[in-house]
Design a protein around this nucleic acid. Structure first.
Length: 569
RNA sequence: CGGGUUGUGGCGCAGCUUGGUAGCGCACCUGCUUUGGGAGCAGGGGGUCCAGAGUUCAAAUCUCUGCAACCCGACCA
């Protein structure tokens, strides 16, 4: 390709609403343009990268036996109603009506669709199967952000495994785990797996693949010593035991005028340390007022609450709802003696005594509360959010928190969809059994952005060779016949060697060409100018190291081809 | 969905307080000179000032309503 014919609208300045490095650089480098919030056009350079990312994913999933499909992106409501997700997906799903008034949805994910196809599986002899597609998904995210990192319309590879039993699922899961690690290696995105919540999907094992980045939106709890790593939505830690002293035989109500916060009660004469307090949160879980109790110094993680209760719509109760439910205002709330609302208590409070908590009477608290004696605990659950510095549950090392981008997610679905859609096969004994499924997703555009987040400098992007839009750019210092001819010869040789080459034949100044080449991130640059040509040489520059060497004109194409080949293997 | 910010040529911004012919840099077009790190000079083109309503002799500027985008949070297979 000749740069003079290529549409690459580079910008000296990024739009000021682009903040994440990948967002700024992909805009500036002429890779993407925004249409509206969460929807981007892929320009020629961007689309080349996108396709290379998709191809790597395709190769690795094919390598574990995946079979590629193409599925409808628009679905009838009925299929989502059957699986029960028409409601549970909530507002994340784009919905529309056709001319007949029938409800339709744009695909958020494709478990349902693959399951309907899988209904034609009949025998264990056909298993295992791994099916996948790489197609556009639509999600009406409440807040699209950071360029390609969080969008509403995006290509995703999702694969689904179908097995006769749990052991088969384990194998498919492990195969995907390995395939994903190979994919991220090839994409040049450092990755690690963490334990994760399954969210609304249900299921058991769930591993998210993460890459560390300030532009991310997931917090990962990580142990530097052992291999413990978990999404904060799932993470646990060891807490030192607390000596509560002798339990009081009964609770004691005492006046606490003006004390409305945990901190205020700590400072209050006759109050209690935060670790000795109960924090009572009034939440509305699927319209049911529920009391959630955690230790005074702990934070509730709402995803944990959702996982523990299966609730879909979770929000804090408003002041009116709280007053109506408990007869008191925030600051004086408690769960002691409450029986007409469900009470969910964090595991960290098991066995605790001599606790202090609000008395549901403004300006009053209880002391001497024994959690298991005085609260009507409907459910115990791990609800609190782990904080940096707490002890690793495996080895006791202080945990750290890393901001990360989720670049892939694999989890076990079990038989949920098989049960709903009748995906059953005959087992060797002739018995009809549901097929066991796994689900494995990887966002193409997000990984493209993640690759940039992991590979850039102050001049621009530094694409890994594997996904660079062009592997090498031949920068012509002049556009006279001699330079042009030398450039075309090298270009032809590179093409013949299977290298993606771009010939910068634009009538532009050297500085512009160098700056654009660096901004766009081509891994290798061959510079042809009078200086080198005089000696029959080209200059060869490696983007990542800025290292420049002189190479004989006759050798340069072969040299670059070797490097490209080496980088991709 | 809550909080904050912002909408002015393709991009970055000024102008708005105090209403009076829409400006700057980059980019773009033409010519000349230049030519190894985002050239110089001269000339030129391009804007419903987010939209609608209102106030006014007069609105980019003041008022109201709406829309959109971004950031923080909530949310997020």
């Amino acid at each position: 390709m000749r740069w003079s014919k290529l549409f690459v609208p580079t910008l000296r300045d990024a739009p000021n609403d682009a903040v994440a490095p990948s967002h700024r650089l992909l805009i500036r480098g002429g890779f993407i343009r925004q249409l509206h919030a969460g929807h981007y056009s892929m320009l020629p350079l961007g689309w080349r990268v996108h396709q290379k990312v998709a191809q790597i994913v395709r190769e690795e999933i094919d390598a574990i036996g995946g079979q590629e499909f193409s599925l409808p992106t628009m679905h009838p409501a009925s299929i989502w109603q059957e699986s029960g997700r028409w409601d549970t997906m909530g507002e994340i799903m784009f919905t529309l009506k056709d001319r007949k008034g029938a409800d339709l949805a744009l695909g958020v994910t494709h478990e349902e669709i693959f399951a309907t196809v899988a209904a034609e599986l009949t025998s264990y002899k056909q298993l295992p199967q791994v099916w996948y597609h790489i197609q556009t998904k639509f999600r009406d995210e409440a807040r699209p952000k950071s360029g390609l990192l969080r969008v509403r319309e995006f290509a995703m590879k999702d694969s689904y495994s179908f097995d006769i039993d749990a052991a088969g699922l384990d194998a498919a899961f492990a195969a995907h785990d390995q395939a994903y690690r190979r994919i991220f290696d090839r994409l040049g995105v450092p990755s690690f797996g963490v334990q994760a919540s399954n969210g609304a999907m249900g299921g058991t094992d769930s591993i998210e693949f993460m890459t560390k980045s300030d532009a991310g939106e997931d917090d990962v709890i990580i142990c530097r010593k052992c291999d413990y790593a978990a999404n904060i939505e799932k993470a646990i830690s060891s807490l030192p035991t607390i000596d509560d002293g002798e339990a009081l035989t009964e609770t004691e109500k005492f006046a606490t005028p003006g004390v409305l916060t945990i901190a205020a009660l700590e400072a209050f004469e006759g109050g209690a340390a935060a670790t000795q307090q109960l924090k009572t949160l009034v939440m509305v879980l699927d319209k049911v007022i529920t009391l959630v109790v955690v230790r005074g110094d702990h934070q509730l993680n709402t995803q944990k609450l959702a996982d523990a209760t299966g609730a879909i719509d979770i929000r804090p109760a408003g002041p009116d709802e709280t007053m109506k439910a408990l007869g008191a205002s925030p600051g004086s709330l408690g769960a002691v003696g409450v029986t007409d609302h469900p009470v969910i208590v964090d595991e960290a409070l098991r066995g605790r005594v001599n606790m202090t908590t609000g008395a549901n009477d403004d300006g009053w608290h209880f002391r001497g509360v024994s959690v298991e004696r005085d609260l009507t605990v409907g459910q115990w659950a791990d609800l609190r959010e782990v904080e940096a510095g707490e002890a690793c549950p495996n080895c006791g090392t202080p945990l750290e928190v890393d901001r990360c981008i989720e670049i892939g997610h694999i989890f076990k679905l079990g038989t949920k969809f098989a049960d709903v859609f009748g995906v059953t096969v005959a087992d060797p004994d002739g018995k009809v059994v549901p097929v066991v499924m796994g689900s494995y997703g990887i966002g193409i555009g997000r990984n493209m952005a993640a690759a940039v987040e992991a590979n850039y400098d102050d001049k621009g992007i530094i694409w890994p060779v594997s996904i660079a839009p062009y592997e090498v750019v031949i920068t012509l210092m002049r556009t006279d016949e001699e330079t042009m001819t030398a450039g075309e010869t090298i270009y032809d040789d590179l093409k013949a060697a299977g290298v993606d080459a771009l010939l910068d034949d634009r009538d532009a100044r050297a500085g512009v060409k160098f700056a654009d080449a660096e901004l766009c991130g081509f891994p290798f640059r061959i510079t042809l100018g009078p200086r080198g040509l005089k000696n029959g040489e080209a200059e060869f520059t490696i983007r990542s190291t800025e290292e420049t060497t002189n190479v004989a004109l006759g050798d340069i194409a072969g040299h670059v081809a070797d490097l490209v080949r080496a980088a991709k293997s």
